[in-house]
Nucleic acid binder design. Structure first.
Lengths: 145, 145
DNA sequence: GCTTGACCTCAAGTTGACTTGAAGTGGCAC
DNA sequence: GTGCCACTTCAAGTCAACTTGAGGTCAAGC
């Protein structure tokens, strides 16, 4: 059973050691032991980090991610709850597609003002109907690989 | 030209007055005047807020949103930059689809452990290859309509 | 055996996006 | 003309998710 030193895990996952320690502190991952002072992780930690990364992209808080996937990276919620999450994701995916289309459109549309373009106005109508959601203080960071 | 009292705009957009004032402070929207003390907004503010909401769903910071869409809700960036944004969005959309599929899968898969399921492992491989991105301190809130 | 360097702990700081609280203002209904 | 109440300003607080800094430890290589 080959364990990964925190430095190795950090390098392989792209997640800084400080973040790995933080994730462990909040119970998202577990270290299996120490080599001297240094934390040693099992190979499954890489999988967990991939899952965490995906969840963050989706805008889930670390709390929610921990709620959905247990320490071993397996789902802990009942089917219905998992499908509910997937449904919410689907809504978000549609909103992202709307925005992508809006961006592509304004990049190409020759109309004087975008507001005069029926296609753009239609996109925005969709946007305002698919109401946005917020939850207090859920930090999300994207960018910086 | 009918103006919207901040209270009306707040109600119609679902965005709290404190947030509208904040958006105005950071230059995302503009009020056209006052009725007594109360800010009055033009109807285009609703469009701007829809755009802001979409941008936030996509994980853009308010700074980035302001950068892409000017005060009038029209794009301010050159075509190439807009397409680049759209490309990044597309990557994110694919990650979200991966996560959605993973969730649906674990909800249905009868395998003893998900790690033993080839389909799940394949999903995770995709997840770890499509590397996640982060940018320092870009708060994002989802949920709470 | 001593240096080196990457780790350790713990507290405090940072960031973006808001919200909250105190103290004040002004249009509108009565 | 007076009370109400939703607004106003401004400073300070909050929250998640990390990062940073000070001071310390320890396995490995020389």
């Amino acid at each position: 059973m080959k364990l990964l030193d925190i430095g190795v895990l950090s390098e392989r996952s792209g997640v800084p050691p400080s973040t790995l320690r933080y994730y462990e502190e909040v119970g998202l991952i577990v270290s299996l032991g120490r080599h001297g002072l240094r934390r040693q992780y099992g190979p499954e930690a890489l999988t967990q980090l991939a899952l965490i990364s995906l969840g963050k992209t989706a805008g889930f808080s670390l709390d929610e991610i921990r709620g959905v996937f247990g320490r071993d990276g397996a789902a802990e919620l009942p089917r219905a709850a998992l499908h509910a999450r997937a449904d919410k994701l689907e809504v978000q995916i549609r909103r992202l597609i709307t925005l992508r289309d809006a961006l592509r459109h304004v990049a190409e549309c020759p109309a004087e003002s975008h507001m005069e373009c029926p296609k753009f106005r239609r996109l925005l109508r969709v946007a305002s109907h698919t109401r946005s959601q917020r939850r207090p203080g859920a930090g999300f960071r994207a960018d910086r690989g």
